[in-house]
Design a protein around this nucleic acid. Sequence first.
DNA 1: GACAGTGAGACAGAAAGAGTCTTACTGTCT
DNA 2: AGACAGTAAGACTCTTTCTGTCTCACTGTC
Lengths: 191, 191
Amino acid sequence: MGTAAENSVLDAAKRCCERWGMAKVTIDDIAAAAGVSRATLYRLFPGGKDVLFDALRVRDTEEFLTRLSAHVADADGFEDLLVRCVVQATLELRADDHLALMLSSEPGETANELTVAGLPRIIRIASVFLVPLVEQHLPRREAASVVELLARLVISYFLAPSDQVDFGDPASASQFIRTFVVPAFQPSFRS
Amino acid sequence: MGTAAENSVLDAAKRCCERWGMAKVTIDDIAAAAGVSRATLYRLFPGGKDVLFDALRVRDTEEFLTRLSAHVADADGFEDLLVRCVVQATLELRADDHLALMLSSEPGETANELTVAGLPRIIRIASVFLVPLVEQHLPRREAASVVELLARLVISYFLAPSDQVDFGDPASASQFIRTFVVPAFQPSFRS
DNA sequence: GACAGTGAGACAGAAAGAGTCTTACTGTCT
DNA sequence: AGACAGTAAGACTCTTTCTGTCTCACTGTC
C-alpha cells in the first residue's frame, strides 16, 4: 500500500499498458493518465521503468494463475501459449530490461540473492527452445493480441519465485545466464 | 482494390492501429506486421501517413454508420461521443495532419479541388475552433480509451461527406463550441 | 543473362522520449 | 503574515527512436 498518488500512478500505468502495450507507453502518458506532473512521478519513482515494474508486477500468485488459465483456454494449447508468450516478451523487452528482470526477483534485490531454483520452468524451456524458433521464423513483431500478456507473464513468473514449478536445477545463476539468456541476444537472434 | 501486397499492408496497418492506437504505430510496425520490407512499403505508398490514411478510411458508408451506432450504444450519449471524438482526435492528430485532412477529401486530391461545403459540419467547426482551445489548455494527451475511435471517426466524417447524420443544428459554430467543446476541457473532464 | 521486385539494413536528418531543473502556484503550519 | 512542503508546467539537454532514402544482394521471370 503506497500513498494515494503512488497508487494513482500505478493504476494509470496499468491502464496505459492495457491500452497501448508496455513497449509503447511513455512517462508522459502515465503522468497524464494519472493526472500528475512528471516532477511528481519522478519524486515517487526512481525512473520510468520502475513505474512499469511496479505496475505490472503480479503480487498475488492466485490472481496470476487465474489469469494464466483464462488465457490458456483461449489459446490453441498450452505449449503454443508458452511459445507465443516468450517470443513476444523477448521481442518486446530490451536486453537491459531482460537482464534486470533476470537478476532480481524482487525490486530491491541484488543479483547475488537470486536462487536459480526459484525460477519457474517456463522461462528455461522457453529460452532454450524459442531462440531457434525465432531465428527461423523471425516474425519480428507479431500482430498478436497477446503482446501485453506476455510481458506480464514473464514478469509474473520471475516475481513469483515461490510457485511450485520445478526448475530442474541448473548449477548456478551465472551458468543459467550464460546458457540460456546470452545466446538469446546474439545478433542473429535479434535480426 | 489494390494489389495483394497493398491490401496486406493496409490490413496490417489496421491491425496495428487496433492494437496500439494510431499515434503509436510506426512504419516498421506496419511493415513487420505485413511481412514486407520498408522498401516495399515505400514503393507502394508515398509515406507513412498515406498508409494510415488509406488503412483507416471508411469507404463504405454503411459500415461506418454501423460502427458509429455500435459505439453510440456504449457511450453515455451521442453528444458525449461527439465531444470525446473531436477532443481526442484533435489531441492525437498533429497540426499538419489536421490541415492535410482539411485540405483533401480524397488522397490524391489537391487543396484547390476541395469544396468546403462538402466537409461535414462537425469537422469544419471543430477544426477551426479547437486548435486555439487546445493550445490554451494543452492537456497534451489524455488517458482515454477512445483515442483510436476518434481518429477513425474524424477521418470517416471527412471521407463520408454524404452521410445523413443530423447534428441537431446548433445555431452557430460558436454556440456549438461553447456548448459541447469548451466543457470538455474543464479540469473535471480531464481526470 | 537482363530485369523487375524484394528483403535487409546502413545512413542522415527529424522527431520524440527521458530525466533534471527552474519557476510559480497552493495550501498548511506557526 | 511568513516559512515551508508539495505540486504543475514546461524549458532544457542528452539519448533514443523514427522516417525516408539509398545501396546491395537475392530471387524468380522473360
